[in-house]
Amino acid sequence: MSERTIELEILRYNPATDEAPWYQTYTVPCQEEWVVLDAINYVKDHLDSSLSYRWSCHMAVCGSCGMMINGEPMLSCKAFLRDFGRKIRVEPLSHFPIERDLVVVLDDFMEKLPRVKPYIVRDQEKPIEEGEYKQKPFELYEFKQYSMCINCMLCYAACPQYGLNSEFIGPAALALAHRYNKDSRDEGRDQREEITAAHDGIWECSFVGACSEVCPKAVDPAGAIQQMKLASTMDWYLERLGGVGARVKRSLSSRRTSK
């Protein structure tokens, strides 16, 4: 096993004793195949048990361990030491208040997520006895990508718009709204649009595209938001076309929900 030593520079903040965050450097003996999280765990286990951070699955699916690593939002369980030099700087995710050390406050996202109704909305529920909704592979494909979001918050840490205006609903929540809008089983797009196309919704996005670049699951929230902008614009024009527009809209949506 090949070993190497790294300098791990971690932003520390303890609300009980610190006025502001500060950097603490640890010298960590590492295995070559380690990820940054392994090095942080080494610190916790052997050097400093007071270091606080979140982690669980160590396989990039639970979304707990998002951090800024050398300034980039990343999952620390998927940030391989082999891709970094001897010195690595670790900070809590940007744009979120720091609770303590690498732990950030996520209340904002947890409050926004339910607002976009990230669940199937239907006028009439189908009885269980009637079995599953049929969904063709393409209908699944249409929304599958957006269902892969692990809520790791890297996109919020990358999004400068969210940094400047924390009222912005933000990439992950909007992508999840889009995920349900595009689901052939769903009939809730109009309800969601009231939130997503209003203030602090899709039009706050200026298409920097950073969210999609840092997304560890290739969800492409930027793409989702641009598609929602297109759809919302279409809706605006169709509404102004009166009866004809309404008919077009109905035929478009009935095609989507045909079972």
């Binding site: 189908k126 599953e132 909704y133 049929k134 969904q135 592979p137 699944l140 929304f143 599958k144 089983r185």
Partner: peptide
């Protein structure tokens, strides 16, 4: 499935 779980599908849906 009714709640939206993206189960993989056969070609007939």
């Amino acid at each position: 499935e009714h709640w939206g779980c993206p189960w993989s599908r056969e070609t007939d849906g």
